[in-house]
Write a protein that binds this DNA or RNA. Structure first.
Lengths: 107, 107
DNA sequence: GCTATATATGGCAATTTTGCCAATTAGAAA
DNA sequence: TTTCTAATTGGCAAAATTGCCATATATAGC
């Protein structure tokens, strides 16, 4: 009973971590690159280094990414593998919705 | 360029909507039931009716559920179909992580 | 009409998240 | 050791989310 709730909370934490544009952008970058340093991610998102670092902390705490330090750089990579299928589906859903809206506007 | 950002924002909105234990619980109930009234969802989550209603508003605004009013009741159903595969994957990931933690504790 | 029931909305305080700046840590190179 | 560079952490104000209460809306039945 109670561990079931913990389970839901852990699952919600994953969704919550993905529920921010900057973090989602970083995850999408990591879906194409296997491994990127914080500086790479910063240049893609375009925010303060400290902000990027905290976002990465959220993704790591949710178990979505893992990090490995080599030299001066910290490299991040995806730990959760099943994102691409779902992202494609949500993308289709959003495109479908936009089409609906355009139809409605057309009347 | 700019619509790409809107796209990411819409996608993040879906994840964000799923990133709350009560909302995730409602979605999981709708994965098994096809259609449920607000009162059913309330009894499962156990919160104030107004709170449930607002949570459902969030899910609807993200395009995850749709509603249909019949008589005094409003029935909600899933609009986003591709959740179950992804949820199974995150569930596996969480279970795996818990196993890891237990191994670490065992040493 | 009036009453009861199911859901939604407005308002508001408490909590959480976000993002910047400043300061710190850790490793590389001089 | 000193210096430089990459990244993290602490602090804090602004913004967003959450959840309850009170109120409103809509529909059914009398």
């Amino acid at each position: 009973m109670e561990q079931n709730k913990d389970f839901i909370v852990a699952q919600a934490k994953i969704f919550k971590a993905l529920g921010h544009p900057s973090r989602l952008l970083m995850v999408e970058a990591l879906m194409q690159q296997e491994e990127l340093c914080v500086c790479d991610l910063q240049s893609r998102v375009g925010a303060d280094m400290s902000t990027i670092s905290k976002h990465l902390g959220v993704l790591k705490a949710a178990g979505i990414v893992r990090d490995s330090k080599r030299g001066l750089n910290v490299y991040y990579s995806l730990q959760l593998k099943c994102l691409s299928t779902f992202m494609r589906c949500t993308a289709d859903a959003i495109r479908g919705r936009l089409l609906e809206d355009m139809k409605l506007l057309g009347r």
